[in-house]
Design a protein around this nucleic acid. Structure first.
Length: 394
RNA sequence: GGCCGGAUGGUGAAGUGGCUUAACACAGCGGUUUGCAAAACCGUGAUUCGUGGGUUCAAAUCCCACUCCGGCCUCCA
């Protein structure tokens, strides 16, 4: 009985999968232009808890979790030029660091980890579908845009801006999007960008180029999960424009399938909040980030997991060295309990209580507290069982 | 400017109507242990939940106003 906050309705909702034997979740992954920072760690630790809980509830082989790599984008290309290598090499290096971090943090490997560069036929096909339906249009420059005026009416009741609580007219007024005279409406977004000289590009019926950011996720989720999924997740900042546009793309392609609110693109949209530093968002552009691998080396993976799980996933977590040090001690205590010989089966009452906490919108802070209480009471079997569900590994 | 979210002890943070004079953790303080120290373990902390009103038998929890802070509107987990 999992209750999760659905960004689309802004309410905690009882989660019921479309098919309990194949529960599906797509979470936006990283753009490997740089090594991952602590913020990436948070998102995927949180998702890991959700994945573990779903596996516990529906069975280990009944959950399909997809997390992609956006391995081609402006910044990767820019970086490759800067250091004199290929975009592929930049992406591969950073993906390797990312995967090592995920491994260190004991984050379960997703069922599928698609990349843009290996999903090109699906991406091109998706753009073609939107062109065929006249929802997208090409420009003289060779770009392809989504025509927001053509967003089909959908049985699911979606209107553009619903996911991010924005009104289209506000978006256009406040728009700082690069002016492009070839666009029909200011809010139209790129599905495909025409090739620039000397840049990596792919051939398509409408000309060479590379995909826009949003279409990639629509295509990769279609290829791995299908046109409808249970949970779609990502960082808070992806709500707009990325997820809003992704949703518009899927409705453009599959509106006839999406007959009502229960049968839309995703049943539930899941977003986690950021890591902040002195109250301000940790980000690459502000330069106030800490590399994930450095933090793991300095404090240990268990301390980082403990620190992150102390706060509810929808609230910001403020980073400081002191905060990580403060988490190291209880994390160590937990680790020591996990290193003890297996203490047998947990008490049913404890399991039930523990699961009800996680099922209540992933209340990991409360679950961690229950673990500490069990630890003080020397309930080793309970501690070992609970810690495992929270992804701690001896 | 528009929209969204938040404000709980020295610190992080859970709690969204009575089970809470507020979980859990860190720091501090007291103690046990120890040759001393460290580590470990035990004990100890807000009569109070941004401010002002209101609703209720009952509010940190609901409603209204205000103040402050953050996020999104542009690449971003």
């Amino acid at each position: 009985m999992l209750n999760l906050t659905n960004t689309l309705t802004r309410k905690k909702e009882l989660f019921t999968p479309r098919d309990p034997s194949r529960v599906t979740m797509y979470v936006c992954g990283i753009t490997p232009q740089e090594a991952p920072h602590l913020g990436h760690g948070r998102g995927y630790v949180v998702t890991d808890i959700l994945f573990r809980l779903l596996r516990h509830t529906y069975g280990e082989n009944s959950v399909v979790y997809v997390r992609n790599y956006t391995d081609v984008d402006d910044k990767i290309i820019e970086k490759a030029v800067q250091i004199g290598t290929t975009p592929e090499a930049v992406a591969n290096d950073n993906i390797a660091i990312f995967q090592q971090c995920m491994n260190d943090l004991n984050i379960l490997t997703p069922t599928h980890e698609p990349r843009i560069t290996t999903s090109m036929p699906e991406i091109i096909a998706f753009v073609q579908t939107l062109l065929d339906k006249k929802i997208a249009y090409t420009t003289p420059e060779g770009d392809v845009y989504y025509d927001l005026q053509k967003l089909p009416a959908c049985g699911c009741g979606y209107h553009y801006g619903q996911l991010s609580s924005k009104k289209p007219e506000d978006l256009i007024m406040g728009s700082r999007v690069e002016p492009n005279l070839s666009k029909r409406n200011a809010g139209d977004f790129a599905l495909w960008k025409a090739a620039k000289p000397d840049e990596i590009s792919w051939a398509t019926p409408w000309g060479r180029g590379r995909p826009g950011w949003h279409i990639e996720c629509s295509a990769m989720s279609l290829a791995t999960i299908g046109p409808q999924m249970d949970i779609h997740g990502g960082g808070e900042d992806l709500q707009f424009p990325h997820h809003e546009n992704e949703l518009a793309q899927n409705i453009g392609a599959f509106s006839e399938l999406y007959t009502d609110a229960e049968n839309g693109f995703a049943k539930l949209w899941f977003h986690w909040a950021f890591i902040t530093v002195n109250g301000t968002k940790m980000s690459k552009s502000l330069g106030n980030f800490t590399y994930l691998d450095h933090a793991i080396a300095a404090h240990g993976a268990a301390a980082i997991r403990y620190w992150l799980l102390q706060t509810h996933y929808r609230k910001p977590v403020d980073y400081s060295e002191d905060a990580l040090k403060a988490a190291a001690k209880p994390a160590k205590r937990l680790m020591a309990a996990l290193k003890e010989p297996a203490a047998g089966a947990p008490a049913p009452a404890f399991q039930e209580k523990f699961l009800s906490m996680l099922n209540d919108d992933l209340n990991t802070a409360k679950a961690l507290a229950a673990l500490n209480t069990a630890l003080s009471a020397n309930e080793l079997a309970n501690v070992q069982w609970g810690a495992k569900l929270l992804g701690f590994k001896a």
